[in-house]
Nucleic acid binder design. Structure first.
Lengths: 130, 130
DNA sequence: TCGTAGTATTCGGCAAGGCGGATAAGTCAA
DNA sequence: TTGACTTATCCGCCTTGCCGAATACTACGA
């Protein structure tokens, strides 16, 4: 599913509205998790196997499997069978564009970008953070 | 504040690593909420007051206030006083670029983009969706 | 000064979603 | 077919973060 390229889309602003926002937000959500983003960046650099991904991010294999499936469903990466392994790669060059652009913006605002520091001033005890 | 260009920021994929990912993920998180994304798109089209934003998204004023503060902290929008109102606008052209790019990608993958439909097959009762 | 409009913060509640561990399901070599 | 290996699903647990309502704070006008 999801033919990798085939795309022809070109950036065209305007014509927003609609529940298009919901879909796009969903799209962003996939990248809003540090682990998934790390995985995407890792795969962006080169084709990777699941095992490599597991080692790279350091969480359990089942979790990585879910994350990779998520990235694949969203069209960020493509899975390819190689023997009994799966190799993941990024098929759409716009993905790199998107990440690069976001990284640039984030870097510029990194200063104030504790983002939503106002939201979780709750909680108590528990010093384990993560 | 926040000079649009200013800092380096040149597209260079790979060679990322670092906890840069965390910051960037944080950045994406701001756009991963449909309400916030809707607000950003709304403001992207024209400068808006808080009241307009509240009406546009249809949730409580306190919530909108938090969302707008979040967007401002992340550098997506800029707040400007006008009388006793606040007017929000987008100061960095790259924000529009980012949204446009994401929208294009999301549209292309919208088909399979139920994104993480595999994650919440739990729960029961309660048919209130979201 | 006081009153009002506009904005921000606090609070309790609740769903979404990330995590590890156990385990099922699929894939290939002998 | 069996066994080894790789990947995906299920499970309970727990944190994150969104929500409305109440309310405090701030800026401006009279």
């Amino acid at each position: 599913m999801t033919h990798p390229n085939a795309t022809a889309t070109r950036p065209e602003v305007a014509a927003v509205s609609c529940t298009h926002s919901d879909t796009t937000a969903r799209f962003f959500r996939a990248l809003s998790d540090p682990t998934r983003l790390r995985l995407l960046e890792f795969i962006l650099a080169a084709e990777r196997t699941s095992a490599e991904c597991v080692e790279h991010v350091g969480i359990s294999q089942p979790r990585v499997s879910v994350h990779l499936s998520c990235l694949a469903d969203c069209g960020y990466v493509i899975a390819r069978r190689d023997g009994r392994k799966l190799r993941y790669s990024v098929g759409d060059p716009r993905v790199a564009e998107l990440v690069t652009l976001a990284r640039a913006l984030a870097a510029d605002n990194a200063a104030a970008l504790d983002c939503c520091p106002r939201i979780p001033p709750k909680s108590s005890a528990n010093g384990d953070a993560r």
